[in-house]
Every structure is written in structure tokens, then in C-alpha cells.
Amino acid sequence: MAAIELRNVTKKFATADGGTYTAIEDLSLTVEDGQFCAVVGPTGCGKSTTLTLVSGLERPSRGEALVHGEPVRGIDTGTGFVFQQDAVFPWRTVLDNVAAGPLYRGRSRAEAAALARDWLRRVGLSGFEDRYPHQLSGGMRKRVALAQSLINQPRILLMDEPFSALDVQTRAIMSTELLHLWDQTRPAVVFVTHDLEEAIALADKVVVLTAGPGTVKAEFEIDLPRPRVVQEIRLDPRFTRLYGEIWEALRAEVAEAYARTTRVAGVAS
């Protein structure tokens, strides 16, 4: 049984002028247990929306979202979510941020703190327990977010362009660390990004979405060997070949999305 299955889902949003806007249409996607799936597509094609359907934050307008064969009804706390923007709690210290999950799940204060310390060590943040998020760099805040999510040992991990705000070097380092952490518990991952290199370097499978309303355009198996070091894998000839292949599929969608926004801008101005 697949860890995540989206069956012909469509999501429509009500717009301010009373109409509806179709964010994704007839999208089907399967992610196996322990599989790392990257979703790429141009901005605004419905990548974030797809994740909200899997996590239960939103319901599909049509179609079905299944997790471990069960339809998603409401927020599923077995799912971890790492947001694009900072979603760590700015008024809590690093330790309290990471300990939040276990506390909400009924662990005692001491147990939660001990667990949190362990996870902070795993993400390389020992010694920063008492800091507030604003006292950390962007990369460190992302580590807090990762630890906050992984401490609950989710079977499903959803990540929405988690590293997009980081500089290139930090991003590569964080990606390698993510793979390392993922390897310890092997949840099924849906990793949304608009960066194709990042997608190929991380994933077992890359899914290309069409320009909005998003639907699956093509899927590619990434058979690069693991463990991978993100900084170096780009030099692998197989990487270059995959990149060429997938970019061929993605290029048209990016061009389409770009043309659309510039057309709209042109009309508006």
C-alpha cells in the first residue's frame, strides 16, 4: 500500500470577485513508503496546494487524498510539515520549539525536553537551546524547523520549498544533512521545489507539474546511488543526463507560466 496517494484531485479556491480559481486539476500522484519524491513546477502551479491536501490542512474539491490507504480527513498528526516561510514559534526558545510536538502529544515536560535535546544534537544545534529564533541565522532556523518536525517521527514528511530562502552554499549543506536525517527514519517524503538541481540531487522520483492549474506532466525515476553528497553529485554524468531529460519537460511549463505573468503584467500596466 502506498504511503501517499492522490487520486485525480482537483482543488478550487473561491476568489474575491465571487468566482472560483482552479489551483490544481485532476492530479494523481503516488509516493511509496520510504520514497523521497520531489515535485517541481513553475511558481503558482499548485505545489503548495498539493501539500496542503496531503496534510489535511485543505480538502480536495474533487478526487481523493489517501495516506496509508485511509482518506485524509482533517489534520493528520502523523504527518510532518516543513513550511516555506519560518513557522517556528518566535516567542519560544529553540528547545521549547522542538519540544512542542512531544508535549502536545502528551509526553511529560522532562521527557519532551530530553527528546528535544537529542534532536537538537542531531541537527547540530547543541548549545543553542536557550536562544530565541530571531537570534539564529536562516539556516539554523531551518534546522530547528526540521528537528521540530522530525522529533515526532512522522511516517510522512512534507516539505514546501524549505531551503528556498537560504544562500546557495548553506542550501547544499542543508540538503546533504536532510538526506542523512531522512535515512535514519526513512519517512515517505514529498519535497516541493522550483529548483530542478535540488530535486534531482535529493529524490528517488521527480514529478514535473504543468503550469497552473497544475497536473502531473511527467515522472522521472532518479537512479543515482545513495548515500549522496549533494555538493558533489552535480558533477556525475548521470546527473547531467537526467537534468537534460527533465528540463526538457519542465522548460515548456516554466516558459508558459512566465509568459502568463508577463502578459498579465503587460495588460495591467
Binding site: 490542512l57 498528526t77 510539515f81 513557522a87 514559534f89 512542542a100 502536545y104 502529544r105
Partner: peptide
Amino acid sequence: VDRNLIANARLLGASRWRVTRDVVLPS
């Protein structure tokens, strides 16, 4: 209140009351 923060708390397992106390009130 930042909707992401509320969503995050709920995904981490917070009840509605805990969301109010731990996210909405401080924010």
C-alpha cells in the same frame, strides 16, 4: 496571527485550546 504558525501547531498535535494559548495569545 500568521496562518502558518497555527497550521504548524496543529500539525504538531496541538488542540484548539493549546493553539489559542500557545500561538494566538502570544502573537
